[in-house]
């Protein structure tokens, strides 16, 4: 019981850390690609936390619902990332810049 709980805790804490790191990255970078990566980091963190909630009631074993939802979520995040990346490349080729105008700090 203890092991299940600590496992749940580890996954949850790791996920939370990833979310925090990702959010920080998202806020601190202006380079578009980095921002998208940061978004994916946050997404991974959330899925990890989500997965951890599957062990919420240890007696029932692993809950299937989060797994199903995580898979769906990953697909969604993937398609969002795909769209974002395609837009970024298009943007870079049109404007020659990897950041949005008016975002004055350049850190490529």
């Amino acid at each position: 019981m203890m092991t299940w709980a600590s496992g749940w805790l580890i996954y949850g804490l790791t996920g939370a850390t990833l979310i925090g790191l990702g959010l920080f990255g998202f806020a601190s970078h202006t380079n578009l690609l980095r921002r998208i990566l940061a978004f994916n980091v946050v997404g991974s963190g959330i899925f990890l936390v989500f997965g951890a909630t599957g062990f919420r009631v240890p007696e029932l074993g692993a809950d299937a619902v989060p797994q199903a939802l995580i898979i769906t979520g990953i697909v969604v995040a993937l398609s969002a990332t795909a769209l974002a990346v395609s837009l970024i490349t298009r943007h870079a080729s049109l404007s020659g810049s990897a950041t949005l105008p008016d975002d004055d700090r350049e850190d490529r």
Binding site: L83, A84, L87, I88, S95, L100
Partner: peptide, 11 residues
Amino acid sequence: TESITAALRYL
């Protein structure tokens, strides 16, 4: 270009 920029910001 402006549309792409706008779209990116939106995204």
